[in-house]
Design a protein around this nucleic acid. Structure first.
Lengths: 362, 362
DNA sequence: CTGAAAGCGCTAACAT
DNA sequence: ATGTTAGCGCTTTCAG
């Protein structure tokens, strides 16, 4: 009377025995091939691989975790209330997990019911989470991946960990990111190329390494063009809509107000647009606004945002792949063959929120 | 040399045997309690439950799926490119899954790389997915839950299934939703209460049952107030930003243009705002705009959207709980004790995109 | 380089 | 109402 028995299309899935029979070897040898544990003759390996394809074998994850030391389970811990952003990563991760036979669980920490980033983190909760969940590895997206205490906890527990964004640290090597500095640089370069000379930036929170890099790239480009970035044109927001519009209001209130504002992410760029509209400043005619991320919101507002696109899904996939290969190499003794840091390509997306600098202005 | 053995805090997790020992019963009796399979004396049950708490026992899902008929795995199939929206559901689902000891996998079908809803569905792909993944149950959020062919496939495979939104059907009973009719009604009622008489609606795609209900509720409220809804004030969009602005442009181009527009979801409402801004129509002074969902975007644009809030996370949670209880009752013979349809509360959120109807206009 | 034996934690089926 | 037995599919360990 079990539920699964009531399913009509019940066909027994192929097991390791089926493959062994098909290839004329023992299950153990098949296991070695599947787990790439080496020490199998090439000819045998190929024969087994053909057999695997033929019977459409997929290892039973339940059996694996029962016998082996691994749990075949990864955990993503997140505290970013921007679900659209995190969701894009998540889709990539789940996709990669399916491909490599892993499960993914996710845990939200802190108050991500609200919209604002940076609510306090309960460190004990995280420690417990990592202990209890008994996962093979942990994935940390921003902003939690910038938190030193969290990184410490992960190091103490000695659980393999990959970070999305962030900068390399001594303890936690695995990392997937784009080149945030170059992204900031390219964006500034573009804004200058269309005539802007009086530029402003809304930085992200100080703790975000990615945010600092975007700022540095931006500033470097202005320097290289012989432009100055006055302190009054540098604001610091919180990566959310409210802080973006807050900072923009301050910038737009100034006498010689900037002709272009770079908000360090799309949410704050949306806030900037909002502030401009409140003040009847027309974008892009009177003001150019650019964001960073190419989050869904970049295309769901008017005007659509010029932005630097991060390949979030690809980053999610890569993070899982990287982590898994690291975990796998831990068991053999070739851990050092894993390249710890993967940097993916960004892309400048020019849309309607930026335009040639209105002539007649400095 | 296994990776897990290198973890410092390695403490063997409690097994069913530990519980049995602690409670002075056999593992089998513990199993019966854990799985609520009945036929255990109340006193014994309580003793076992205390033991479970004491040793902090959590069933090993791997062992469970290996021995039992169940896979303890659910599958969400989605084709909605709006990741923010689907992501909210997902968070709720994952949360519930963790609580009940299930795993969740997700599969995107169709081209959800793009932004537009309603790309063609590959039915064979779905059939294969359900076959291959061998899950205990399937969760279908909109819009895929409105697709008749998909529902047919699920019925043929006889796999338990819960739908988010949608209307009851003969074959697939399990369903979580809000009262879309009432939501549409309440929103229209509110708009009329603040003086609007010339109202327009942008409907969602015809196939979406939820969309049709919102429309009917909206229309009913107008009728009840003695107002008419002329055909020229009814447009049909695609639940995305582009179609929303497209429809709004048409509405605003008209002679006696409406003073309030209800877009059937927030994405289309955002598009409506965009169209208004293009035409220099000030919202909410000259035009009120309302959406539906309270998706994240409702609070990331200016002016913030008046909308009907759907409790998406709660809906995600409920869908998993409902499905699991159904699956569990399949094994015993009390399937009919599961209430198939759960209707959660919506909430009218009044924000800045709506205002008193400008007097002097009809 | 390959195989045989044992057991992971749990539950179905069969006792009692 | 409770206990016993067997086995799920895989990997670890130990033998060749």
């Amino acid at each position: 009377m079990s539920s699964s028995k009531q399913r009509k299309s019940e066909i027994r899935a192929a097991t390791i025995k089926d493959v062994a029979l098909e290839a004329g070897v023992s299950p153990m040898t098949v296991s070695r091939v599947v787990n790439r544990t080496g020490n199998v003759r090439k000819a045998t390996t190929e024969r087994i691989q053909r057999a695997i394809a033929k019977v459409d074998y997929q290892p039973n994850i339940g059996a694996r975790r029962l016998s082996g030391g691994r749990t075949y389970q990864l955990l993503m811990i997140f505290n970013n209330p921007n679900v659209a952003w995190t969701g894009e990563l998540l889709i990539g991760m789940m996709h990669a997990c399916r491909n490599i036979g892993y499960h993914l669980s996710i845990e939200g920490v802190g108050d991500f019911e609200g919209e604002s980033i940076g609510t306090p983190i309960d460190y004990e909760e995280i420690a417990k989470l990592v202990d209890r969940s008994r996962v093979d590895g942990v994935i940390l997206p921003p902003p939690i991946c910038f938190d030193r205490r969290v990184l410490e906890i992960v190091r103490e527990k000695a659980v393999p960990c990959v970070r999305i964004a962030g900068v390399p640290t001594r303890d936690i090597q695995l990392r997937v990111s784009i080149d945030n500095f170059a992204g900031g640089y390219e964006l500034a370069n573009y804004l200058v190329s269309i005539g802007h000379k009086n530029l402003a930036i809304i930085k992200g929170p100080e703790e975000f390494a990615a945010s600092a890099l975007r700022f540095e790239g931006f500033a470097a480009a202005l320097r290289d063009h012989g432009l100055i970035l006055p302190a009054c044109n540098i604001k610091t927001g919180n990566f959310d809509f409210e802080s973006g519009s807050e900072c923009a209001r301050e910038l737009l209130r100034q006498k010689g107000r900037p002709t272009a504002i770079f908000a360090s992410n799309d949410e704050m760029a949306a806030g900037t647009l909002s502030a401009a509209q409140e003040s009847n400043i027309r974008v892009p005619d009177q003001l150019s606004v650019a964001g960073f991320d190419d989050a869904p919101i970049a295309r769901s507002i008017w005007p659509k945002l010029t932005t630097i696109r991060q390949p979030l899904r690809a980053m999610g996939e890569k993070s899982v792949e990287l982590l898994e290969s690291y975990i796998r190499h831990l068991d053999t003794d070739t851990a050092d063959t894993v390249r710890p840091s993967v940097v993916l390509d960004y892309e400048l997306k020019v849309r309607q929120s930026t335009a040639q600098c209105p002539s007649g202005r400095p």
